[in-house]
């Protein structure tokens, strides 16, 4: 795992617990979440229709799309409820010196 692939998102206190922030990098959008057991990252756009998940509701380990209520598991990316049927891509996250990094391939 080379260091160059890890992209800094921001400080750990930039996200409230059980919430998310949107992170744009180059031409892609990601969501970075703070759950009770740590930080997680997924693609930032719903797989059903092109809408930003940043406005969605985080409950437990799930993110719900704000437009049509498709639900994804944040940790696995699994599509849990229609109209979402395609899984959401997830990304590794690490914390170093109170800073969050995600690994983008």
């Amino acid at each position: 795992m080379s260091e160059e692939n890890w992209i800094e998102v921001g400080s750990t206190d930039s996200i409230e617990e059980e919430d998310l922030i949107r992170f744009d990098h180059q031409d892609k959008t990601f969501c970075v979440y703070k759950l009770t057991d740590g930080f997680y990252a997924t693609d930032g756009i719903c797989t059903h229709e092109a809408v930003h998940l940043e406005d969605g509701l985080v409950m437990d380990d799930e993110i719900e799309c704000p437009m049509h209520q498709g639900i994804f598991n944040i940790k696995s990316g699994e599509a849990l409820s229609p109209p979402a049927c395609e899984d959401l891509k997830t990304y590794p996250v690490k914390v170093d010196n109170n800073k969050i990094f995600i690994k983008i391939d």
Binding site: V51, D55, G56, E64, C65, P66, M67
Partner: peptide, 8 residues
């Protein structure tokens, strides 16, 4: 997307 979370 702007109202979904609050409606939910």
């Amino acid at each position: 997307g702007k109202i979904g979370r609050d409606i939910r």
